[in-house]
């Protein structure tokens, strides 16, 4: 494996370790004489402005967010296709250049269709 990736992997572990250390220090301080832990049912109930929370919390939300997610997936996959192209395009010939342009045109047509159909409206 590339040593640079090993560095990244090791520093991930180290970073998580440092944070866990911080968290445990905070726990220790919170339970010591400096801090204080006095849980009661009002304090540990979920937040609501001025009244007891009612109803289901995890209610269905607007379908728009899902649509944004789907659009994101299409364009993010496009971006991940373009990344390798963008570093090797100086070694490619004109034909492959036009192939990528065709791909971009097709995607833009998709975006235009979505736009005309009102998929990008938010109301």
């Amino acid at each position: 494996m590339n040593p640079e990736f090993k560095t990244i992997f090791y520093s991930t572990l180290l970073g998580v370790g440092i944070i866990l250390l911080l968290v445990s220090i905070s726990f220790a301080l919170g339970n010591s004489r400096i801090g204080s832990t006095r849980p009661d049912s009002e304090k540990s109930s979920i937040y609501e402005c001025g009244f007891d929370p009612f109803g289901k919390i995890r209610t269905p939300f607007a379908i728009k967010f899902v649509l944004v997610g789907i659009l994101f997936m299409i364009f993010d996959i496009e971006v991940s296709f373009l990344f390798p192209w963008s570093i090797v395009f100086n070694q490619l010939n004109l034909f492959s250049f036009w192939v990528v342009y065709t791909f971009l045109v097709i995607l833009s047509l998709g975006l235009a269709y979505e736009w005309l159909k009102g998929g990008l409206e938010w109301d």
């Binding site: 220090i25 301080l29 400096i34 540990s44 109930s45 979920i46």
Partner: peptide, 12 residues
């Protein structure tokens, strides 16, 4: 912030 009480919501 470090010495504040860690409140854990009961329904989390």
């Amino acid at each position: 912030l470090l010495t504040k009480e860690l409140i854990i919501p009961s329904q989390a």
